[in-house]
Computed example of a mutant assay.
Amino acid sequence: MKAVFQTDIGKMRSHNEDNGGVFMNKAGNYLAVVADGMGGHRAGDVASEMTMTQLKQFWEETEEIASPQQAEAWLKEHVTKVNESLFFHSQTNDHCQGMGTTIVAAICTKQFATIGHIGDSRCYVLNANGFQQMTEDHSLVNELVKSGQLSKEDAEYHPRRHVLLRALGTEQTIQLDVKTVSVEEGDMLLLCSDGLSNKVTEQTMVDLLTSDRSLEEKAQALIDVANEHGGEDNITLAIVQFLDVSESR
């Protein structure tokens, strides 16, 4: 496996509230994390950074994850711990009241990837079956689309498209959606904040991910396209490539 993480402030924001990274545990498995923070007075920064820091520490202390059941249990247990930590911090620090963050995380082994998410940061998989979004946005407009009240096209421009129905740290208890997919050499995962998914079409994502570039160049190209299309939000992504490092560019 090979992985890259990249974040960019975008063209309109004064600071970056996104965070995340790709971390390795004792068995050489990856945990990829993207967190898009929210809240006044820079509290979004606090929420996303706390999420990244705590998950990184938990993961680096973790032994091998041998099955999807173990991976799903790990994500649920540790994201719950992070949620409790964020919620307590927001209740005990006035400047952090109401803070929260989206979270999309993927445990990556040579046989499978287990994805957990809360909010509207996404995970896509590129494999022999094509390119597929693996997560479902916990957002108001997505619920309107699912109920037939709004078309997918209109949802992209809806004035309340940023309203989340679920976020990490905003409530004492939280539900994490989890899903596992089998992987083979050549498959790729793309995790990203809505600063990317709102600005880059799925076809462009596929074109760039399958281009003859290094992983780092692919990440930068995706960010460049998001900025070319306005860059109104912070842009963050992680790409995991299921190849031996010796076989990848």
Rank of each mutant, 00 (worst) to 15 (best):
S147M: 06
K2Q: 14
L196G: 13
S147D: 12
I118T: 03
D224V: 13
D120M: 13
I107W: 02
S182G: 11
Q241L: 10
V34Q: 00
L191F: 04
V178H: 11
E60P: 00
L189N: 13
T236P: 04
S67G: 07
E72C: 05
G21M: 06
A35G: 00
Q70G: 08
G40P: 04
G148V: 08
L243M: 15
G119P: 12
L164E: 13
I235N: 03
T114A: 01
T51K: 03
G21L: 02
C192A: 15
A155D: 11
V46F: 04
D18P: 12
A32L: 05
M12I: 10
H89G: 04
T204C: 12
T204W: 10
P159G: 03
D224C: 13
L176D: 06
T62S: 11
M24R: 07
Q133P: 01
F131I: 06
M50R: 06
I65K: 01
Q91I: 02
L144E: 13
E184N: 04
I103P: 01
M205S: 07
A66M: 09
E185G: 13
L222C: 01
E171S: 14
V240R: 09
R161V: 08
Q172W: 02
T80F: 03
Y30E: 06
N127A: 06
L86V: 09
H158N: 14
A106N: 12
K146Y: 04
A105H: 05
D207T: 11
A238Y: 04
T135C: 08
Y124E: 09
V245R: 12
L144M: 15
M24S: 02
L190K: 11
A219I: 08
T102N: 02
T102Y: 03
S193K: 07
G231M: 15
P68F: 09
E84H: 08
K152H: 05
D94E: 15
S151P: 01
V79N: 05
V79T: 13
V34W: 00
M205G: 02
I115A: 10
T109R: 04
L144H: 08
V245E: 14
H95W: 05
T53C: 01
G119C: 15
Q57C: 02
E156N: 05
